[in-house]
Amino acid sequence: MNDLFSRLANLTARQAGRASTFVVSILIVVVWAVSGPFFHWSDTWQLVINTGTTIITFLMVFLIQNTQNRDTQALHLKIDELIRVSVDARNSMMTLEDATEEQIAIVKAELQDHCGEAAEIVRTAAG
């Protein structure tokens, strides 16, 4: 089931991101708007576009979340691989996404201090 959903999500995401899909969406809205006078701007006429866009939006939320989760996980794995092979890197960074907000704030402060020291060394050497 997960494999089928992943394949369907990938295919749909690729299609949804194409210029042609955007153009078709614009054409649908234009046709709907132009058809308004023929339906006397009825509640049913309005309901058609409202229902259609609501359903598409609802489904796209799950698709976008799936795509974002997969991309984020792949990015983490790539960065973890770079940390793993780097001699001077701290391997504890590989599990940072599992840390608490407080632990992340501490690491951020440490990195900012380190960057500040490095910037000062560069300024001194250049000066």
Rank of each mutant, 00 (worst) to 15 (best):
I49S: 01
R70T: 03
L59C: 06
S35E: 05
R70D: 09
R18L: 09
W45N: 06
P37T: 05
G52K: 04
N66S: 15
E81C: 07
F62Q: 00
I83M: 06
M93F: 13
T53Q: 03
Q73M: 10
Q65P: 00
A74Q: 14
K78R: 12
V23T: 14
L63G: 07
N66E: 14
G17Y: 04
V85Y: 11
Q68L: 01
L59N: 04
H76M: 10
I28G: 02
A33N: 09
V61E: 07
D43E: 01
L96C: 08
Q65R: 05
G36V: 02
A89S: 05
L47A: 04
I83T: 11
I64W: 02
K78T: 05
E81P: 05
L82R: 14
V23K: 12
L96I: 13
I79N: 11
R18N: 06
S92G: 13
K78F: 07
L96D: 08
A19L: 14
E81M: 09
Q46A: 01
M60A: 10
L96S: 13
M60E: 09
H76V: 14
S86G: 14
S25A: 03
Q46H: 02
I49Q: 01
S20Q: 15
V34M: 13
G52C: 06
L75T: 10
M60N: 10
L96Y: 07
R70I: 00
S35P: 05
I28N: 03
D71S: 11
L47Q: 05
V34H: 06
N91I: 13
Q46P: 00
M93S: 12
A16W: 00
S86P: 07
A74C: 10
I79D: 09
T54W: 08
T53P: 00
I83F: 11
T54F: 11
I83W: 05
L77F: 12
R84A: 06
T67I: 09
G36E: 04
S92L: 14
V34F: 10
S20Y: 11
T51Y: 02
F22W: 12
G17S: 14
V34Q: 04
T53N: 01
